[in-house]
Every structure is written in structure tokens, then in C-alpha cells.
Design a protein around this nucleic acid. Structure first.
Length: 418
RNA sequence: GUGGGCGUAGCUCAGCUGGUAGAGCACAGGAUUGUGGCUCCUGUGGUCGUGGGUUCGACUCCCAUCGCCCACCCCA
């Protein structure tokens, strides 16, 4: 038997409804903030990610889903969305469009990792990017859009945690300070951190090993070492969010696993989301586009892990989406065509209707409707049909009435069946 | 990448110390004429993950391989 590739998965109905619905909310909310969807290739030259995400990151170091095409070129299935957006921005001369440019994207990303619950090699992400604006208001907008999206899904008590990574120029100074402060305790750090010491010292900051955390807690936060400009920027973002009533919290040790971030980096936490499981993260990346050979265009954005988001979706949302009940339309005798006509009348009104097309008896049809979870069954045939009507039966109440065919959709809409 | 557990019908599992497979659920039909959810009956469905070995004979033993799950790691 042919099986799915490791780390991929099949999302079947009704589970798939949650994806469709979450994506619809995203399109609506982000669209409302002026973001339009950009659809990009899943496959990019490996070089793009090495240069944007960063050589020393885990993503590039060991998680890229890379392989050679028939001509030996190294291709990689996109591990994240921002790099591709930056590439497309440059390649299509989007700097010529009215600035700033607001883009959203959604779709599968790939990371070649050992999989586990909530972690797949192919996983969905939803994100937005605001390109061409470097003000605190730009960051605040992006975070507000994110906050609004999650709130629309029914999440409460959302807190945005953010940190100030400063500008690239600040980094050597900070890293030097960090390493100096940890110098004497170097041996006490975990093996991974010892490795990070030389390769990517910033990552020591968000190590999960308890001892490392203790040691790191005693060091000077990045935010205190950054330039005055960077400090004002992130403080401005925080202030703007507070004015908007969005809960913000400083996370002095927050570092994200991508090299291109500077100044603002953030994540969203919520009681429902659990402590260690990040479902969403983002930040500012003013040098990314120019580093890739494009114009000097600043950017800020975030990405949400869709798989995890769906795992922790509020019950209210799940129930609303999964609790939908279809209408079933059953023919009696030679009423196949009329049955389909009734389904069409309902379908165009947005009422999900299933036609009975297997030729089973009315009795078997009702049994089937029950199993589908239908609340209403429309029975087409016999005397009523001769009079231009059908029977609308409420399965929960066990009541039914004859309704003229032309009015079926109206009646179902009125009784709240949709 | 490291460590551990598991792979028998769509699902959850049974199958004793080797004699070529069962249950429940699910699915389909029926219990007379155009009315379901309960009950009863019947039926569909498995190369026992795959390959090889031991054996007269393996789902049961051995080896390999693939897949899945959990933890670590890292992240979304």
C-alpha cells in the first residue's frame, strides 16, 4: 500500500472544516486591515533561505527539506513565508507600488524534522507582511491585526509578549556583554548552549534547560543595550498597543530563531495556548530585502502555525463549525430530477444539502439522514409533488409539513436551518 | 539526530506454550405498501505492516526493513 510521506498528514472532513473556517476568518480580518493575499511557490532555490533565514539557524542548519532537481540545482520546500515574500517583492519590482504594501499569505511550509504531536514536516502557516513602513505604528498595526484575528476566533486573555533585539549594529556589543557576564559559568551551560556560544550566542537566551535559564536570568537584557533609536521604536510600539487596549508584556529573553529580525520581536501567549507551545511569532526585518539584493525597504510581519492554532481552538469556535447539520433531500419514486432541483435551490442560498442518489428506499434514506446528523429532511415525491410541494420533516421534533417547492429555501432559512 | 513503546478488518482490540483468524463499533440491506433514531436478522470487509529465515506447518519464534506513538532536542 502506498502511504503518505513521513511528516505529512491527511486532513479529512469534518476536521477540514476547521481549516477552511480559520482561513476564511483570516482572509476576512486581514483583508479588513488592507492585506491582500500573495500566492508564492512552495519551492524556492535553497540559496534564498540560507541567505535570509541565516546559516547558523536551526532551520537552515538541520531542518530544510532540500533536494536536487533533475539538473542538479538545489531546491528547498519553503520552511517559512517571509523569505519568499521578500524574494517576490524584489523580483517583481513591488517597490514601485504605492507604499506601504500589505501582503498576506497562507499555506503549507516544510521543515525536515522528527515529528511529534503538533509538529509536522508539512504544516500550515498564515501570515502577513507590511513592507515599506518603519514606524512604531507599522509594528502596532501588524500586531493589532494578529490580535484581532485571534480574538475573532474566540481566544480570550491574549497577551502579546515582545522584546527589543536592537539593530544589527547593537548586536556585537550585546553579545560581547552577554558572553562576558556568562564567562565564568560557561561550563554550567548545557551542551547545546556551549555550542551556541560560538555559533549563535543569542540563542542561549531562550534555551529551555532550567540551569541555562537561571544563568541567563542574571544577565543584562538586550533591550538595555540597544541604541536610543531602537529603544524609542519598540517603546513606541508598546505604547501604541496599550493605547489600543491590547495586553502587552515585555519578555527580556525572547529571541526568535530567525536571523533577519531586528528591533521588535514578538509572540502571542494565551492561557489556552499553553506555555511552551508557540503558535505565533513575528518581528521587524528592515534589512532583509536589501540583504537579498533589493532596495532598502523595511518590513514587519508574523506567521501563525495553523496546525497548532487549530489544536487549541476555543470550544465555542469548534462547536459552531463542527456542529453544523446538513439538510438531506430524499426522493420517493421517480423524483430524482426534482430532488436535484431542490438541492440546487438550497445550495445557491448557502444551505448545505445532500441529495439521495443511491436509489435506497425512503426508510433507508431517513436512516442515512440520521447518521449524517441532519436536522431537516426534504422528501420529494408522491401526492405532494403532484401538487408542486415537498415534505419538510424535522428529525428532532418528528414533525413535518408540506411546503411548495418554490418556498423550501425560504422556509428552511426562516426556521434557522443553515 | 538520541532513547523507549507499538504495528491483526475503516476504528478499538482478542487470538493461550506455533496447526493458515475472531469480537464490538462502523458500513450496506432487510424485519411487506411513502417516514429515521431502539431492537433483531443478514451481508461486505483482513496478502495478520513488508521482506527473508527456522519449521511438515507461523499472526504466533528469529533477523531485517518500513511505518506510527511518546520523551529529549528544536521550533510553528
Amino acid at each position: 500500500m502506498i502511504q503518505k510521506v513521513r511528516g505529512t498528514r491527511d486532513i479529512l472532513p469534518p476536521e477540514s472544516r476547521l481549516w477552511v473556517e480559520v482561513e476564511a476568518v483570516a482572509q476576512r480580518v486581514f483583508g479588513g486591515f488592507g492585506y491582500e493575499e500573495i500566492r508564492l511557490p512552495l519551492l524556492e532555490p535553497t540559496e534564498l533561505f540560507v541567505r535570509s533565514v541565516g546559516e547558523a539557524t536551526d532551520i537552515v542548519g538541520k531542518e530544510m527539506y532540500t533536494f536536487a532537481d533533475r539538473k542538479g540545482r538545489s531546491l528547498t520546500l519553503r520552511p517559512e513565508g517571509t523569505a519568499g515574500v521578500a524574494r517576490a517583492f524584489i523580483e517583481n519590482g513591488l517597490a514601485q507600488r504605492p507604499s506601504p504594501l500589505r501582503l498576506s499569505y497562507l499555506g503549507p511550509m516544510f521543515r525536515y524534522e522528527k515529528m511529534q504531536r503538533g509538529r509536522y514536516r508539512q504544516f500550515g502557516q498564515i501570515g502577513i507582511e507590511l513592507l515599506g513602513a518603519a514606524t512604531p505604528a507599522a509594528d502596532a498595526e501588524v500586531m493589532l491585526a494578529l490580535h484581532t484575528f485571534l480574538a475573532e476566533l474566540g481566544f480570550d486573555d491574549l497577551v502579546i509578549v515582545l522584546n527589543n533585539l536592537g539593530d544589527p549594529e547593537d548586536r556585537p556589543r550585546f553579545i560581547e556583554l552577554l558572553l562576558r557576564e556568562l564567562e565564568g559559568r560557561r561550563e554550567e551551560l548545557c551542551a547545546d548552549c556551549q555550542r551556541r556560544w560560538d555559533a549563535n550566542p543569542l540563542r542561549i537566551l531562550d534555551c529551555k534547560v532550567p540551569r541555562c535559564r537561571e544563568l541567563v536570568a542574571g544577565t543584562t537584557p538586550v533591550a538595555e543595550v540597544v541604541s536610543e533609536e531602537a529603544r524609542r521604536h519598540v517603546d513606541g510600539v508598546e505604547a501604541a498597543l496599550r493605547d489600543l487596549g491590547v495586553a502587552v508584556q515585555r519578555a527580556p529573553r525572547l529571541v526568535r530563531g530567525l536571523d533577519y529580525y531586528l528591533r521588535t520581536v514578538f509572540e502571542v501567549v494565551s492561557p489556552e495556548l499553553g506555555e511552551d507551545t508557540v503558535i505565533c511569532g513575528g518581528g521587524r526585518y528592515d534589512r532583509l530585502i536589501s540583504d537579498l539584493g533589493g532596495p532598502q525597504v523595511p518590513g514587519v510581519g508574523f506567521a501563525i502555525g495553523e496546525d497548532r492554532l487549530i489544536e487549541v481552538l476555543p470550544a465555542s469556535f469548534r462547536e459552531r463549525v463542527l456542529g453544523r447539520r446538513p439538510v438531506v433531500v430524499l426522493p420517493v419514486g421517480e423524483a430524482a430530477a426534482t430532488t436535484l432541483a431542490v438541492v440546487r435551490a438550497l445550495a445557491v442560498r448557502g444551505i448545505a444539502a445532500h441529495a439521495e442518489v443511491t436509489g435506497r428506499s425512503l426508510k433507508a434514506g431517513l436512516k442515512w439522514a440520521g447518521k449524517l446528523g441532519a436536522r431537516v429532511v426534504v422528501i420529494v415525491g408522491g401526492d405532494e409533488l403532484a401538487a408542486g410541494a415537498v415534505v419538510v420533516r424535522d428529525l428532532d421534533r418528528g414533525e413535518q409539513q408540506a411546503v411548495p417547492i418554490a418556498e423550501v429555501a425560504d422556509v428552511l432559512e426562516r426556521t434557522g436551518e443553515a
